[in-house]
Design a protein around this nucleic acid. Structure first.
Lengths: 170, 170
DNA sequence: GAAGATTGATTAGTCAATCTTT
DNA sequence: AAAGATTGACTAATCAATCTTC
């Protein structure tokens, strides 16, 4: 019964989550808020999803980038790829290293830099996470047709271009 | 010259920011990542934007909800509107109160609850922030036509429904 | 016991300052 | 001096545990 109650409450909150906060003034504003709100929900659910491995979306993305690169990356490059501050990368790598998922190595000809590589265990974990993550992505996005997905890609990209243009001009 | 360099570097990073990280596998995955990435950029730029008032998007949204309500709100209601944990609301309200933008009051017939109200200063600040924020929103979203904005609203909403459906079924 | 709020621990993120190496 | 990384101070967010009041 406790579980039933918890589920019911959860479902209610999720239904509410689809709706935007009530402070929108016009369509233009609503469009921005709708994109922002969707991003927040994505973040929130990703956080819950990755907790089953005692992990997080930030750690998942870092491991993913490392695997994708296929070779050691400097922390600077990681930060560049993920668009996060270098000091943040330091912390993430430290925690991942503490968990044995990643290893720091000196860079032969530049002792300022640090090379980060996946350990065997890190590789196993990212493979497993990514497997389940892919299924989840497909489930979530099955709410949209292929054409709608393509259109969403186009429109969000345009929005990013708008963001970039505005921040340039100041 | 220093300023020119800084701007040039800034522009470069912004151009890069339009592009997604390189780990996308197919259109479905890319659609989700594109929405997520756009949300991250929105969050990031909002953070920078509101720093001119020594504030943040979280504080702005809290003040906005308070003004919209037009009457004292309990912290529970605030958390519900903004979809953030109650303990987070406690912290935000504390910092806003310390800055004199908001006031805590006892609720007459329920001494468990706290009512939060805008101070005169808080009201003045949210009016000023919102004024400039509205312009900024219009500038950013002018990259999209009205029809595109409407479509973006529709598609992101569908995505939230997909998120809600998936999280229900587990 | 449940509701509303607070506290404490932890993660993520930013920025400014510092340190070492180039 | 500039590059790469780290440290420290801070905000924001979550969760678990606690406290007071209903």
């Amino acid at each position: 019964m406790v579980k039933a109650n918890a589920t019911a409450a959860g479902v209610m909150r999720r239904a509410e989550a689809v709706e935007l906060p009530l402070t929108c003034r016009n369509q233009t504003h609503e469009a921005l808020v709708s994109a922002w709100w969707t991003g927040r929900l994505l973040q929130k659910q990703a956080g819950q999803f990755f907790r089953q491995w005692d992990s997080s979306d930030a750690k998942f993305n870092l491991l993913l980038v490392l695997r994708w690169a296929g070779e050691p990356m400097t922390q600077k490059d990681i930060g560049r790829q993920l668009l996060v501050d270098k000091s943040n990368v330091t912390g993430l790598v430290t925690r991942l290293a503490r968990a044995g998922l990643v290893r720091r190595q000196v860079v032969p000809h530049d002792r300022r830099s640090v090379h980060v590589t996946l350990t065997a265990r890190g590789r196993r974990l990212i493979d497993e996470m990514d497997e389940r993550y892919s299924h989840r992505v497909r489930d979530v996005m099955s709410a949209l047709t292929e054409d709608e997905q393509a259109e969403l890609i186009r429109l969000t990209r345009k929005m990013r271009e708008g963001l970039a243009a505005v921040s340039e001009e100041e």
